[in-house]
């Protein structure tokens, strides 16, 4: 995909985390601001799958220096990271 706006990215990442990584409940649906780390969503296998998804869908690899709790605390934070990495890749 050539470019992606923030709102679309939020929707698509939210769908992935909710449906493929099975986060959120009926009583407490997942939102872009849900605290993924506090909810215990991102264990090692889910993290590996999420990174593979980001690489195949959005064409960016997350470098080790960006693997912080800050960047993965919510879907919105992950979307920001993806957008930053995509703009860095585009400017190379």
């Amino acid at each position: 995909m050539a470019d992606v706006d923030r709102a679309t990215l939020h929707d698509r990442l939210l769908g992935y985390v909710r449906d493929d990584l099975k986060a959120g409940t009926e009583a407490e649906p997942l939102t872009v601001d849900s605290p993924l780390l506090d909810m215990g969503v991102l264990d090692s296998v889910r993290t590996a799958r999420l990174l593979a998804h980001i690489r195949s869908e959005y064409g960016v690899r997350v470098p080790p220096g960006q693997m912080t709790g800050e960047h993965f605390r919510s879907v919105a934070a992950i979307a920001d990271l993806v957008l930053t990495l995509r703009s860095q890749a585009a400017s190379l």
């Binding site: 780390l37 991102l42 090692s44 990174l51 690899r61 080790p64 960006q66």
Partner: peptide, 18 residues
């Protein structure tokens, strides 16, 4: 290796090499 990086397989391999 921070708590988030510790469970991120591919970046962890990058880390070992870099």
């Amino acid at each position: 290796v921070g708590e988030m990086l510790a469970q991120a397989a591919e970046p962890l391999v990058d880390f070992v090499l870099e």
